[in-house]
Design a binder for these strands. Structure first.
Ligand SMILES: [Mn+2]
Ligand SMILES: [Mn+2]
Ligand SMILES: [Mn+2]
Ligand SMILES: [Mn+2]
Lengths: 217, 217
DNA sequence: AAGAAAAGTTAGGATTGCCTAATTTAGATT
DNA sequence: AATCTAAATTAGGCAATCCTAACTTTTCTT
């Protein structure tokens, strides 16, 4: 059985591996908030349970089993987030942290009930796709707002979910999944993007703009 | 901070301590499914954090702090059970085990939302009172069905929540909290109780009858 | 290509919570 | 009061997961 720590490591590797290159020990350590030494130890242990392949000094990759395990944890995480927002009415900026704990303890039966109650939803509160039971996941359609040029328009498909402050700010300026956005201009010197969202014109910093994905229309 | 193990120990001591005598190491070990040696170790640790007082070879008692902590965990447990039954629609015989894990990881914010959504309920799905925030709890009104004599009548106030098989059986025969019961007879030789519940006459064994509490009318 | 810097691993240790086996204490029996 | 038994405790270990410090390997710079 995979422990909570195992699941967190596997999930972090999955996220860092998008693009499919091997994940470095230090990147993992940074993502998990532990020391590189701890990561080395855990990787040795996890490779024994065949969820990943670790090449000493070269990095780590999930196996098919590891990838499935990661997607199942992500499914739990995202369903729980949506449940907390939709059914319990928690603010969307706080549910990520909650789901980070609950994803390891909610039973399959409870998760199934949540899924049914939510009507088999396709995306979480931040617009991220919810993987299916067997690890199928919709591919990420969308470009970072930071990469769009003046004249582009589209719909917000997803926003980064980690930072509560950022999420509250995005709520404030209506830059949430589903919102219609038009890019008016991009300032060349610092990447600030000038946009129109729900009728209003806004300036968003390059940092914020790279935390928002747009599906162009 | 109290760990999951700490909380389970404290809760078990609270339950065994009803009546207020000190709880023995072996009783605790049996309740928690660990060895007496493990209990001795944990008691030493817990007494350092002032939730209980352990007199070597004499037994253990919760302090006021420990009692409050126990009641807060019990509050979580019971609210979660009710939430799982009422909102998620899980069967009442399965929620105890789920709550046993979730009680340690659900945040105060989530718990508060559950409480509101459920309308500040007074009892859990098995009829057990839900302690308040600050550790106030309704006293247990009711006598075991096993102790009633022919002619007695009343309402089921609570049933034992641990055994799923027993709970399914009680559901089957309608002997659930709120049900009206009349005692027709009690067989002297083995304690079997003959009752009427929702129009039907039933024989229940002494074991079952001692798992059901009745508030007599 | 040599040396320095960065990245990664190993060694050794802490903590938590459990175990078994050995020992000690309390309480009951004679 | 001595002895036996049952209960409880201590001693010594193990697995998981983290840490710091020391060492090794890879990569970058010159
Ligand atoms: Mn999230
Ligand atoms: Mn997590
Ligand atoms: Mn229960
Ligand atoms: Mn528990």
């Amino acid at each position: 059985m995979l422990t909570t720590a195992d699941q967190n490591y596997i999930k972090a590797i999955y996220r860092l591996q998008l693009g499919n290159e091997a994940v470095s020990t230090s990147a993992l350590a940074a993502a998990l908030g532990v020391t590189p030494a701890s990561v080395s130890g855990m990787l040795r242990k996890l490779s024994r349970s065949n969820v990943l392949i670790h090449q000493r000094y070269k990095g780590v990759r999930l196996t098919a089993r590891g990838r499935l395990a990661a997607l199942q944890v992500i499914r739990r995480h995202r369903l729980i987030e949506l449940f907390l927002v939709e059914i319990l009415g928690l603010p969307w900026d706080s549910v990520h942290k909650e789901a980070e704990r609950l994803e390891h303890v909610v039973s399959d039966e409870i998760l199934e009930r949540m899924d049914v109650l939510l009507g088999h939803p396709a995306v979480d509160p931040h617009g991220a796709p919810i993987p299916s039971h067997n690890g199928r996941i919709a591919s990420h359609a969308g470009v970072r707002l930071a990469e769009l040029d003046a004249g582009a328009r589209g719909t917000v498909s997803e926003v980064a979910d980690h930072d509560p402050d950022l999420l509250r700010y995005l709520s404030d300026i209506r830059l949430t999944p589903g919102a219609e956005v038009a890019v008016i201009d991009r300032l060349p010197f610092d990447g600030t993007v000038v946009i129109t969202v729900s009728g209003r014109q806004q300036h968003v910093s390059a940092g914020v703009a790279s935390a928002v994905w747009i599906e162009t229309t």
